[in-house]
Design a protein around this nucleic acid. Structure first.
Lengths: 232, 232
DNA sequence: AAGTGGTCTAGACCACTGG
DNA sequence: CAGTGGTCTAGACCACTTA
């Protein structure tokens, strides 16, 4: 995929400061020559970069860098429920793990019947000794076979990618603000006055199967959602 | 733009149920023939539709409808601070309107000096007699000249599009959860226990100028943010 | 008027799915 | 193996900016 070569070339250029914030970049034809690809391929790369907010294309004028060097690190985000903060120091505690039936809403989003079996998982995520997220996850057992408690304590996503060799392609989600129930107050050490940032999401594999319906509730101190919206 | 013709054809097809949820759509070549455009143009339209989560493309297999009829109504969202719920019954009360200097963070995002003049606006949005949003807006006066209180009570965006004939192209934003300060408690009739859903955004014109830096705080009962994330 | 990005095309070739 | 989507190309033409 030559267009990814172009995407990476430009991301690198921005990171190293070769293409500086607010400045004009080389023209499409120039990039095409430099990188030995066709102009259309460069344009496809520019589509991706401008959708992700890194550059701005101005017809008749040129291509401009829109993102600062230090902002580039995040790159284009993968879907997945915790690409939202550094994963490194994040610990996981499984508080519930069984096979059973999904609630109506979950079954509907997973496109299964409420008779079908799913893993029902509850996890707490802990950052530097502090519980910051509670997760409720439903996954159909025949889509994601062989889940164990060990995997849950590490990363479900790693297991899906590396062991099951499946590819995650997209997710849809809704962000709202909610109050914790009494269990959540205990687990996250909150009072009735506190609130949580809730993400309800459905995640899909690249063959279109919905494989996860999850509800994540984050303490507000450790939550932010950043994004860019571009006009079509 | 022929690709928009294709996008609309498919959106219509999904809305009317001609292309049904979970079912296979016509092939690329078929669509190209039907609509009298080239295959590449159809592919460009499919790029847009799959990024917005309406369809799923499976290499070697076909194109599948991924969104229900009733979900299509929202279409592809325009950036802009309140496309997030029905605009109709939304009233606006301007509580502050002056020309002055922007705070540091706003000036930086707007790429102006802190000496430059901006409109400083505070508005309350009211839904069915109930105040639900407080907005703080900063706009450079030389980018958006001629703002009046009347315009603020209607729609700034309409003024920019229809009177100034400028095009809004993108926005970047951050969603977090915050506590109201005492003014906000008064205006929105809240107590210290309540919380707000905050969106901080910078909005750009299609020539790349940042024309608005705004902070919106919504009461949680009337806020949800829906989106789709797609792998590159 | 020259330069630059945006759209569109026809066609080649590759990668994958599914019978 | 046939069908289908994904990538890539060279080139035409249009729309817009800038000087």
């Amino acid at each position: 995929m030559k267009y990814m070569k172009v995407v990476e070339h430009i991301q690198n250029g921005i990171e190293t400061g070769k293409y500086a914030y607010g400045k004009k970049m080389p023209t499409i034809n120039n990039l095409a020559d430099q990188l030995q690809v066709s102009a259309m391929t460069v344009k496809k790369a520019l589509d991706i970069l401008s959708k992700s907010g890194m550059i701005e294309r101005r017809q008749g004028s040129g291509i401009y860098v829109k993102m600062n060097t230090n902002q580039v690190k995040k790159r284009i985000p993968l879907s997945g429920n915790s690409s939202r903060f550094p994963r490194e120091e994040l610990q996981t505690k499984v508080i519930h793990f069984e096979v059973g039936h999904a609630p109506k809403e979950a079954a509907s989003k997973l496109q299964i019947s409420s008779e079908d079996f799913v893993y029902i998982i509850e996890r707490i995520r802990i950052l530097k000794q502090r519980p910051i997220i509670i997760e409720y996850v439903y996954m159909p057992i025949n889509v994601i076979p062989g889940l164990t408690k060990n995997i849950l304590e590490d990363s479900i996503y790693k297991y899906i990618r590396q062991v099951l060799k499946k590819k995650i392609s997209s997710s849809d989600f809704i962000i709202t603000g909610v109050r914790p129930n009494s269990d959540e107050q205990q687990y996250l050490k909150l009072s009735t006055n506190d609130f949580l940032m809730q993400i309800i999401q459905t995640v899909y594999l690249d063959d279109g199967t919905a494989f996860e319906y999850s509800i994540d509730k984050h303490i507000p101190e450790e939550f932010e959602y950043r994004s860019v919206e571009t006009d079509i």
